[in-house]
Amino acid sequence: MTNQVKVLVVDDSAFMRKLITDFLNEDPRFNVVGTARNGKDAIQKVKEWQPDVVTLDVEMPEMNGLDALQAIMSENPTRVVMLSTTTKEGAENTLLAMLYGAIDFIAKPSGAISLDLDKVKEEIIMKVLMASKVNVQGFSMKKNKVTPLFEDVQPRQTRTVEKTQKNTVKKLVCIGTSTGGPRALQQVLTKLPKTIDAPILVVQHMPAGFTKSLAARLNSISAINVKEAEDGDILENGTAYIAPGGYHLKLKNSGGNNITIYLDQTVPINGHRPSVDVMYESVSEIKNYSKIAVIMTGMGADGANGLKTLKSSGNTIAIAESEETSVVFGMPKSAIATNLVDEVVNLDKIASTIMKYIES
């Protein structure tokens, strides 16, 4: 079959390499061109085989997946899908991989050597196929420079700007993203000043357990506070609340001027929980607030229907990430197609565009 997706499978377990290879080769859309047993082997074989997609295990001897990923992304930028364990350490490493440039990840169902990997067979096929269609420029290290992610990175210092006139309209920022989102969120949240006069709500499509690591990582390198949202959180300016995997994020007035987050596990919407549509629809019911809705990189159309509800409810500005910088242009494209988006901007301009509307 012509135009098959060429895949390199990297795992230190021979059993896992065979299983993943068999899953992919059973599908005529794929051709596994080779396998590698550690990071060093992977770097060499990426140069040699020039695959369309690499499946890369995180935990390997000699050179682990994180180190290999950084080398691959700096020398031969390639679409990479990580395979990781769901342990706390596995989640943290997976998050680093996303921030280093991996397109997506697959959580192994039962540890490093998962005898029941067939449970995620369809997910492997879908994510490798999706990765093969990704805009390489959208995640190029050179194109989108990211903050180095080391333990000693300090939150950027922000200058306090004295306001000559207090804006009486309260503002609320709500961001939706999916594939490619962790790096996009890093670009945006680390550029927002601590003094931002609004709370920020974030829906990032991710399984339970991974959003907590994402929030902790972003909090460590941002001037604003970043946390995984908890039921009952009262919204505060200068804090970003990331919806936990497996829960929809909604808002309610809780008396006085307080707006409270509540989380629920009602049915997924178009396969998503958390869902951007659900968050936007809930935000639309909050009165006396001016809203800034942001749709960034991601597969599918989550957020487009919610944006219609949000716009029809009143004072909302909508910002979408451009095709040029989106890893996957699906979500921004669907939002733009509603004709309700006010600005389409490159990723590196999203934070300043948010601030323009906060301060206006």
Rank of each mutant, 00 (worst) to 15 (best):
L19D: 03
L24N: 03
S254E: 14
K171S: 07
T147F: 09
A208W: 01
Q204K: 05
N38H: 15
A351D: 06
K119A: 13
D277L: 06
K170N: 08
V58S: 00
E343R: 02
D41I: 01
N346V: 14
K127P: 00
T195W: 08
E281L: 04
L19F: 06
V146D: 06
D116S: 13
D233T: 11
F105V: 06
E323V: 12
N144V: 13
N93W: 12
A216L: 13
K145E: 10
E26L: 14
P109T: 08
E26S: 15
E151T: 11
I103Y: 03
L310H: 07
P332T: 14
R29F: 13
E359R: 10
F329C: 01
K119H: 04
Y289T: 09
F15P: 01
I261D: 01
Q154C: 03
V173I: 13
L56Q: 00
L201I: 14
I242A: 04
M141T: 14
N288M: 10
F105S: 07
T211P: 08
K356H: 14
D197I: 04
S178H: 09
V53D: 00
N31P: 05
K308L: 12
V134Q: 07
E321S: 09
L96K: 10
S13V: 14
T2N: 15
R17P: 12
S334A: 15
Y289H: 15
G256K: 13
R273H: 10
G246F: 00
G138D: 01
V134C: 08
G176R: 04
M279K: 00
G298C: 05
Y241W: 09
L340A: 07
N305M: 07
T2G: 10
E285R: 14
K212V: 15
Y289K: 10
K191M: 07
S284T: 02
K171G: 03
V169Y: 07
T78E: 07
A102H: 08
G306T: 00
M60D: 02
V203D: 00
M16V: 15
T35L: 04
S213Q: 05
K308F: 07
K166N: 11
R183L: 08
I242M: 04
E48N: 06
G111I: 12
H205P: 08
T309L: 06
N25D: 15
V344Q: 11
V58C: 04
K349F: 04
K227R: 10
I336T: 05
P207C: 11
P51A: 06
M331Q: 09
D67I: 12
D27M: 13
T87C: 10
K333W: 10
D264N: 14
C174L: 14
E48A: 02
A71H: 04
S284Q: 01
D302P: 02
K311N: 10
Y289V: 12
S284H: 00
V203W: 01
D197F: 01
K250Q: 12
V46L: 03
T168A: 08
A102V: 12
L96Y: 05
A215D: 02
V345D: 10
T260F: 03
A320K: 11
A97M: 07
V267P: 05
S282T: 05
G39P: 00
A216H: 05
M1Q: 12
D27G: 09
V7D: 01
Y241A: 01
M206P: 08
V146M: 10
L83K: 04
M206G: 04
L201M: 13
A337F: 09
